[in-house]
Design a protein around this nucleic acid. Structure first.
Lengths: 348, 348
DNA sequence: CTGAAAGCGCTTACAG
DNA sequence: CTGAAAGCGCTTACAG
């Protein structure tokens, strides 16, 4: 592969001059510039990004460590992150932690070894030593979706509290009283917060959240299935299952179907995270939708602001309830909005 | 960040010695090794992968350019690619082309500039100049899923021909005679092949595939919706729509639902690519399943073989039909298997 | 406007 | 077993 030396030789100038025209430095004569450009074209030369990075100490690359690529929520997040990064002149390298702290650590290490300019992470746990160390060492960093309390890093996330209240009001309005949740890992903020919000919302209606109705999942499908089976085996099974993410809702559907039961007739289902397939499931699934694309873009802007020394602040965006049919049909006469906050009723 | 010099100073040895222990070179005294390891630990030193790559001319990194991250098929492919690569000591950088040739080109260029050791690509089109040039220049490369005829690069893909025959036999057995297809872009091999296989299978049953029943999609959801609307507007709409990928099937479901029609009562639906949600859609969708994970792993092995000078051959794996209910219920008395080749009937 | 030179952080023949 | 030195491909003060 042609190097800058080859270009210089071909153009009859020094490598310094080649470098200058490549970087748009103003003090180059028009003649030299033309000769260099000609040589670049003739040789099909492309600058070696590795050498450039070593010299300039910047890679124009962002690392993104997500919890699970198979989760459409994170896949959409990754897409918007890449899009915004590209618009700002950065590439992104994605690491998939698969909800495993050890894999998360592997990716953080690899990314740091590659000297990425900044790190976007949605932590799978309470924070590996390596990640905390990176944060302390001053690697520009921002948390997205999930975060680690006590670490001084901006957080870009969505707040589902109001939407969860809307959901519980909706469920209560439908006559449901025994509500259960498939929780995410307690080591994650979203794992804890969604349970807290749910419990709080239930409390407002005078409803309890007994321990038996809190199933411990890991945000992946199999755990949703397993927890749902446990709920169904209870002497008094819940009337509604709220899955804290879309994959666990998928697992819940698997479990219900495997028993020959029907949603919502035998048990109602709602999910955190809205995905396109929820419109076409049997029945369509009531869900809480996050402004995923906007989160990804905001996270990149915050990170790039940090990298380029412009601060970079936390952002919290609201989630919203999308009512479909998986929790039962509302009485025809009742109003749609269970609460003052805006609730979109899906047209499907 | 500590460099190799700092470690050398701390350990009281030369940087050469540090490098040797870091790389497991045998000729280092036990004492020196211990001092170096101690210094590494004390300083929290991590080798700079950028510098190492520049020096060794290898990055231990694979580039993967996929057509669309939002497509669960590619997301699963990407996951298995990363997994296998990691097992073999490589990282992978994913570029999402979003079915756009210009974006594909952007990623190929970026990846090449980073001097990745090898390139895995599922081309969005007939091949950009830059990609063809890379192939000709000898960059280790393998095509996965889609490929470009006439380019001397191994291809790892699945052959859906037999499964499409099984599908058509299934449809024919159900009494369907007017079958339509939502095709992928003609610039892609999978776009063309799936239509060809479909036409050939129809021919075996004496059925035509009129132009009006070939809708041009782009493998993304909106095109599936648009094409399906066109089918429904025909004076004689098809009885079955076969979507050449899962996203276009999603779009087809959107279109059918928007008209207040039902699958399979008003129109039947089948899809290429099986995804977990198809079990829970209304109705469950009959699909052709690819051995996606195996494809990803085989592609990585072929690429690494090329990189390490061990050849690297093409691999073709069979796809298989998974019958569900979206094409209608079979008469209770008829046998399940429409053909001699093995057909899995889903338990759901 | 231009070039010679230093240096980014490594690895690896070469000499001892 | 160990170190001094060259060199990977760039960028960028410095001097002219």
């Amino acid at each position: 592969m042609a190097s800058i030396k080859d270009v210089a030789a071909e153009a009859g100038v020094s490598v310094a001059t080649v470098s200058r025209v490549l970087n748009g430095h103003p003090s180059v004569s028009a003649a030299a510039r033309a000769r260099v450009l000609g040589a670049v074209e003739a040789l099909g030369y492309r600058p070696n990004a590795v050498a450039r990075s070593l010299r300039t100490d910047q890679t124009r690359t962002l690392g993104l460590v997500i919890s699970d690529v198979l989760n459409p929520y994170f896949t959409e997040l990754a897409r918007s992150v890449e899009e915004e990064a590209r618009a700002l002149g950065y590439s992104v390298i994605i690491g998939n932690a698969d909800e495993r702290p050890d894999l998360q650590d592997h990716h953080v290490t690899t990314l740091l070894d590659r000297r990425i300019d900044g790190l976007l992470v949605s932590p799978t746990d309470g924070g590996s030593p390596r990640m905390l160390e990176a944060a302390r060492a001053g690697t520009p960093m921002v948390f997205v979706d999930r975060w680690i309390p006590g670490v001084d890093v901006p957080v870009v996330r969505s707040d589902g509290r109001a939407a969860v209240r809307d959901l519980v009001a909706h469920l209560h309005g439908l006559g449901h009283r025994r509500l259960a949740i498939i929780a995410g890992p307690a080591a994650t903020t979203t794992g804890r917060e969604r349970v807290d919000a749910f419990r709080e919302a239930l409390g407002a209606h005078g409803l309890p959240l007994p321990d038996a109705y809190i199933g411990q999942g890991d945000f992946q499908a199999d755990s949703g299935r397993r927890v749902t089976e446990g709920f169904l085996d209870l002497p008094e099974p819940p009337e509604v299952v709220f899955a804290a993410d879309n994959l666990m809702a998928l697992g819940a559907l698997d479990a219900v179907r495997a028993r020959g039961l029907r949603v919502p007739r035998d048990i109602a289902l709602a999910a955190f995270d809205d995905i396109r397939w929820f419109v076409h499931t049997d029945p369509p699934v009531t869900a809480i939708a996050q402004p995923t694309g906007e989160l990804g873009r905001a996270a990149v802007r915050a990170l790039v602001d940090r990298i380029e020394g412009r601060g970079g602040a936390s952002v919290t965006l609201p989630a919203r309830l999308v009512v479909r049919r998986s929790c039962g049909e509302p009485p025809a006469s009742s109003p749609q909005s269970p609460s003052p906050s805006p609730v979109r009723r899906s047209t499907t």
